[in-house]
């Protein structure tokens, strides 16, 4: 008796389970592409489609092909299809990105000193038209245009949708264009290469009526680029009255200052970590 009832239950339930309506989606497909799924059973059922950014519920005729619009499967990822009559059955499928169509390009920094090794980094993220991360390997070409006539390129393969590169800034200051491209898609960023620290800082002085005029030569970096206006040059004068320091920003390539004269004086100049020549003056009398 104990064995009989469970066995009877199995005999009753098994045929019902065997005839539960089912839907058979393709195991994988491309984002945004319409498709149809064959279904089994008869009469009507309720179909649920659940994806990363989509959830729908509708009545369907069983035993026919069930159409799914492309706009229901635009986001890549895992989808679950549930078909319910008296019972529910579920299946899953994956939607893959539709192929490279967009690029996000992150370039840092936007302003960089010249001749700085590996100072610029560029990260390219590859997306499809529906903004799904393109996970299959793609070749991204990074191109640098230091000037109108020169162009340097290097290719990198994406790993999980991302490719990156490090670059050394050029010796000459100015604007450099950095382009990343995959297929027909490209993105450009501009990096301003500015002069590095001052190099060979030289000063000269002239005296007139108890005043000393001190002026730098045009301030350049070691590659010969003009150090940007606004960069501070510190002038220090040591005389019988003590030590006086004046900070002066570079204007039109040079920094100049007017200082009072009290007999003999020694004047030095510095910008950042660079010091210039020393001047020994006899006084303004």
């Amino acid at each position: 008796m104990r064995i009989f009832f469970p066995s009877l239950l199995v005999w009753i339930v098994t045929p019902i389970a065997m005839f539960a309506a089912e839907v058979h989606p393709p195991s994988q497909m491309s984002a945004g592409v319409s498709f149809s799924m064959p279904s089994s059973g008869g009469g009507q059922g309720t179909l649920y489609l659940i994806g990363p950014a989509h959830l729908s519920k509708r009545q369907v005729n069983l035993g026919t092909d069930i159409e799914v619009d492309g706009d229901e499967v635009e986001r890549a990822g895992r989808y679950t299809v549930i078909l319910c009559t008296d019972q529910c059955s579920a299946s899953e499928f994956y939607v893959h990105p539709a192929g490279p169509d967009r690029l996000s390009l992150l370039v840092h920094p936007s302003r960089v000193p010249v001749s700085n090794p590996n100072a610029i980094s560029a990260v390219a993220v590859v997306w499809d038209v529906y903004h799904n991360l393109e996970l299959s390997p793609e070749t991204v070409k990074f191109t640098v245009n230091p000037d109108e006539h020169t162009s340097l390129s290097e290719a990198r393969t994406t790993n999980n949708g991302i490719a990156w590169i490090r670059l050394t800034s050029a010796a000459k200051s100015g604007v450099v264009k950095l382009e990343a491209s995959v297929g027909k898609v490209s993105e450009i960023r501009v990096v301003q290469q500015v002069a590095s620290d001052a190099c060979n800082l030289r000063i000269r002085a002239s005296s007139a009526s108890k005043k000393i005029m001190v002026e730098t030569d045009p301030v350049r970096d070691c590659s010969g680029n003009f150090v940007p206006d606004g960069t501070v040059v510190s002038f220090t004068m040591t005389d019988s009255a003590g030590k006086t320091t004046v900070d002066v920003p570079i204007k039109r390539g040079v920094a100049k200052v007017e200082m009072p004269a009290h007999g003999r004086a020694r004047i030095t100049a510095a910008s950042g970590v660079v010091t210039g020549n020393e001047l020994d003056l006899g006084g303004g009398e």
Binding site: Y48, I50, T80, I82, L106, H108, P109, S121, V123, V125, N159, N160, G161, I162, W164, R166
Partner: peptide, 22 residues
């Protein structure tokens, strides 16, 4: 799996263990 040189993006792979009820 990826941390950008400038520190402005990080990519990770997550092995998630979930129970899903619809």
């Amino acid at each position: 799996i990826f941390y950008s040189p400038a520190g402005d993006a990080m990519q990770l792979r997550d092995h998630a263990n979930l129970e899903v009820n619809v």
